[in-house]
C-alpha cells in the first residue's frame, strides 16, 4: 500500500517538474534535461512489463499534453519501459537482484547505476531527438544534442536521488 502511494506521488511530481520546470530550462547548445527516465528506473523491479509500459506511456503523454509535444515524450518513455527488463538482465550482478530492492543510488553500486541508467538515458534521448528533428541530414545536430544532454540529465538525476531518497544505511546507524 505504501509503495502504491509513493509511486503515485512520484508520478505526479515527475510529471509536473518535467513539464513546468525542466522543459522550460533552456541552457543553450541544444541541451534539454529530461528527468522522468529516473521514474521509470525506480519502478519496482518485478513489475509486470505491460503495467510499466502503460504507466510510462501515461507519464509521457501527460508531459506531452502540457508542453505541446503531442506524443514525443510518450513514445520515448514507452521505449525505455520496453527495454528496461532486457537492460536489467544484461547487467545483472553475479548473485541476481533482490526481489524488493529499488534501483536507486544507495541499493546498487555506482558502476551498475552509471552503465544501466546511462544506457537508458542514451537510448531515450537519441530516440527523442531523432523523432523531434526527423531529418537524416541533421544527424550531426541530433548527436550533438544527445551527447550534451545525456550527461546533464544524468547529473541532475543523481542529485535528485541524493537529495530526495533517504539513505537506508543512515537510518540503521541511528
Amino acid at each position: 500500500m505504501r509503495d502504491y502511494f509513493i509511486h503515485t506521488l512520484r508520478f505526479v511530481l515527475f510529471l509536473f517538474t518535467q513539464a513546468l520546470i525542466f522543459n522550460h530550462l533552456e541552457i543553450g547548445l541544444g541541451i534539454h534535461i529530461m528527468i522522468y527516465p529516473l521514474f521509470i528506473l525506480l519502478l519496482p523491479y518485478n513489475l509486470n512489463i505491460f503495467a510499466s509500459m502503460i504507466i510510462s506511456f501515461a507519464l509521457g503523454f501527460g508531459i506531452d499534453t502540457i508542453s505541446d509535444t503531442y506524443g514525443l515524450h510518450a513514445s520515448a518513455a514507452t521505449l525505455i519501459a520496453f527495454l528496461r527488463p532486457t537492460i536489467f538482465k544484461f547487467f545483472e550482478p553475479r548473485d541476481g537482484y533482490d526481489e524488493n530492492q529499488e534501483m536507486n543510488i544507495y541499493e546498487m553500486d555506482s558502476r551498475w547505476l552509471l552503465s544501466v541508467f546511462g544506457l537508458m538515458l542514451l537510448v531515450h534521448h537519441l530516440w527523442f531527438f531523432s523523432l523531434e528533428l526527423f531529418k537524416f541530414n541533421e544527424i550531426g545536430y541530433i548527436l550533438k544534442k544527445t551527447f550534451l544532454s545525456v550527461p546533464m540529465s544524468l547529473i541532475v538525476c543523481i542529485l535528485i536521488q541524493i537529495i530526495f531518497i533517504k539513505n537506508p544505511k543512515d537510518a540503521r546507524s541511528k
Partner: peptide, 12 residues
Amino acid sequence: FVALQVFALSTY
C-alpha cells in the same frame, strides 16, 4: 509496445 508507439507517433 508497437501499438503504443503507433498511437503516440501518429498523434505527433
